[in-house]
Amino acid sequence: MAVVNKKASSYAFKIFAYAFCILLTVLSLFPFVIMIVNATRNTAEIQSHAVSFIPGHNFRTNWNILMGRGFNPLDGFKNSLIVSVGSTACNIYFSTMTAFALVAYDWKLRKPFFTVIMAVLMIPAQVTSIGFYSLMYKIGWVNSFLPLILPSIAAPTTVFFMRQYMIPSLPMEILQSARIDGAGEFRIFNQIVLPMMKPAMATQAIFSFVTSWNQLFMPQILITRPELRTMPMMVSLLNGDAYKTEYGSVYLGLLLTVVPILIAYFLLSKYIIEGVALGGVKG
């Protein structure tokens, strides 16, 4: 599908494009390199030069401090995974469903409903959090993962995205032909609509997973039992005392926290990279 370009300008364009992309790549990878390097250095080294590319020799010490301070990667990983997978699944599945309701059906309250969703999206979250955790304390949902997972069922941002994505790309005649074949609406949604939304779902799944994995405020307010701590809670524990922070271990902890997200991200990124996936879908 090549369009013939003038060679020289194409060359110049490529040089510029690559240079620009490489610059952005360096900027993007920089914090990860720092994290890895700092995970091998000791507190004093980090305090005097937080940004350095020369690894230290303190990896083992940092690891031991990390493990000695109640950082239990297996428990933390398990808890974070339950919360993040649970909330991502809820977020993606129900948001797509809601968007489907908004796009595919003509119902009276459709427009007001969409307006409400958008209005909710715009409320500053800092203060409404008081109401949320007060309620959770009232109904006794403390030390439970449910208040960290279930709110994702109503995720206005994702619904909005799914709706925007669906409007131009969901062909209604498919739904009709499926109906002619005798498929129920629920089945149509699960077996036809969901697969078609793959790139959009992958995109939002990444965002949702990252947000959920990194959340700290609500878990810290709602979870008090050590065995239920998530990874970011454990890292933040290392940070507890500003005067005596073990920075090397903090970076190591951060690194351990980031690795699972990176893996999840790389797994899902397939859908971002491969545009063809969409075209190839068949019901």
């Binding site: 997978v85 991502t88 599945y93 949902w141 449910l146």
Partner: peptide, 21 residues
Amino acid sequence: ALSVISAIALLASSVAATGCS
């Protein structure tokens, strides 16, 4: 993938439920 995700989600909520105070 979806069935795996929903299975995990189910598992997750059941685990979460036991964590309920």
